[in-house]
Design a protein around this nucleic acid. Sequence first.
DNA 1: GTCTATAAGCCGATAGAC
DNA 2: GTCTATCGGCTTATAGAC
Lengths: 210, 210
Amino acid sequence: MYTHWSVYFAMTRDSKQTKNRILDAANQLFYGQGIRAVSVDAIADKAGITKRTLYYHFKSKDDLITAYLQSRDQPNLAAFARWFERCDGSIEDKTQAIFSGVARASRRPDWQGCGFLRTAAELANMPGHPAMKVGAAHKLRFEAWLAQHYMAAGMSDADALARHIVLLMDGAFSTMLIHRDSAYIEAAGVAARALVGHKERNNTDQPELE
Amino acid sequence: MYTHWSVYFAMTRDSKQTKNRILDAANQLFYGQGIRAVSVDAIADKAGITKRTLYYHFKSKDDLITAYLQSRDQPNLAAFARWFERCDGSIEDKTQAIFSGVARASRRPDWQGCGFLRTAAELANMPGHPAMKVGAAHKLRFEAWLAQHYMAAGMSDADALARHIVLLMDGAFSTMLIHRDSAYIEAAGVAARALVGHKERNNTDQPELE
DNA sequence: GTCTATAAGCCGATAGAC
DNA sequence: GTCTATCGGCTTATAGAC
């Protein structure tokens, strides 16, 4: 009995560690080079295991791609939330702060844009791919999170505004990738601030001050 | 002499036709499936020639990718200009009309987003790739074309405004690809209209009327 | 759960004939 | 300028031993 438990526990713990090592390797390689440029062999090598073990934990490369995006959902949303909340200012300031946070991150040498958007670009002809659904769900969560904050700030059209901000953010990710100039991300932040301010002015009855 | 000219002319004409057939095939396949998902064999097959002939006309796959994007530069800009000019209305209307044009195009079943952005996503870890430079130049031309029109309309900050519109357009391309819902492109058009109108109101001394 | 070994085929690119 | 044929290497995925 005791040995059974012990062995079982050791096995599941090791299994989890191995699975996480594979996922870590997939993260670095898929994000760094793109999903089609990276082979299953390369991921197994980086994880320090054999391909056979990888296929024990993930039933296919597509399955691994999906798990890779799934693992990025919460960390990415948390980063947005952190930049938003750490800025103490108006709702315009907080919105712009998210863009400044992305701009700062984009200057790191290993930054390669948004993994969700880049994967969607590679899987464009497979709209039903499970990884595509994970990506869409992630972007929807970001949009809903923004809408909730604009709603809480008492703004009308919070849903429409949130969607506009998401469009600017995804534009910032894409445009930065092609120009490699973080000024584009800061410009998107300025545009986002203008859109939020525009709504806010429509809402309150204050005169235009600029 | 006569035969020399005749043979030379026939050869160059055939060569041009072959090269165009290869480029047409590359366009359809690269745009439809992505540059890494498409093999040189597949392009040669679709063009109805052998791989050896393809390599006579293009020195490498990277060369062919670059030529593919180069061939999309003018047609894409022409489509934007057409949508802009065919709309007779205010500068806000004309700006929004570009987004409506893209939204309409996006509903075609073979639409797969912006080839420049998708290629940039696939080549993210090769910023110096010649195709990347072609993509950046294309996006800059679009931005400059917009700025010129906003300038002509007598708007201050025409350059900044043009950049904001490009960011919304690239966001529309990317977001549509992940959600497959053209409402996102129309929403980007609404945001673009708001940004243009905002600048315009700052420019003239008219009161806010909405 | 992890290993070695291999299937079966596709990849970009090239050699040499005509 | 276009062909047939092929190089060496890499691709996803699986068989069977321990």
